[in-house]
Write a protein that binds this DNA or RNA. Sequence first.
DNA 1: TTGGCATATCGGGAAAAGTCGATATACATT
DNA 2: AATGTATATCGACTTTTCCCGATATGCCAA
Lengths: 100, 100
Amino acid sequence: MDQVEVFKALSNKTRLQILNWLKSPAANFPDQPNADFENVGVCVGQIQIKSGLSQSTISEYLSILQRAELINSTRVGQWTYYKRNEAGFEALGKLINQEL
Amino acid sequence: MDQVEVFKALSNKTRLQILNWLKSPAANFPDQPNADFENVGVCVGQIQIKSGLSQSTISEYLSILQRAELINSTRVGQWTYYKRNEAGFEALGKLINQEL
DNA sequence: TTGGCATATCGGGAAAAGTCGATATACATT
DNA sequence: AATGTATATCGACTTTTCCCGATATGCCAA
């Protein structure tokens, strides 16, 4: 876990919002017919609509969060679903408590 | 505590190093004749020398860290001493565990 | 196999951050 | 008062980040 990379990923209001939305997909997004929130997460398009930013921006933001190990993705057909990587958040907590 | 501001402050290798050095001033800096590490911290000049960056850069970095509530300063004569603000780190830990 | 979606990648323009040297300010000493 | 030292601020330049629209890629359905 690269410290600077993870903090950079967190240094943006929209990316923080996305992480927060992904805590309760069912509360924050409309139902997805093709997949289940608990298993795979939320698809890019839903996140993009909710954010109000462009498709390309959100796609990039998601990959920044993924490189920082804060989310991970599952491809199902033409959709990519993203969900929180709780192990990454635990690692971050430890980093703060022990290394910073 | 502004979330984006804190994470931006942490998104820089040198600033992370400074925070780390300030965990054990006595181990990381030469003795200061005019002040005591435990009470007031380390003066700007010592941090600047150790970092290898310019005086102006370090002065700015310290103020970024201070605005993020991760360190605080004490002015004594012509010196400004900076030390870690452990309350800020606790707040950060809570932020990670509860809000992120 | 062609057309239509969903997502990723590319190229770019604007804004912010990184970093410097020069200058200003504040305090201390003589 | 004049000089010296420590820190802060300013102006500038370079690099990175923020976002976008356009295009490419991958997958599905007709």
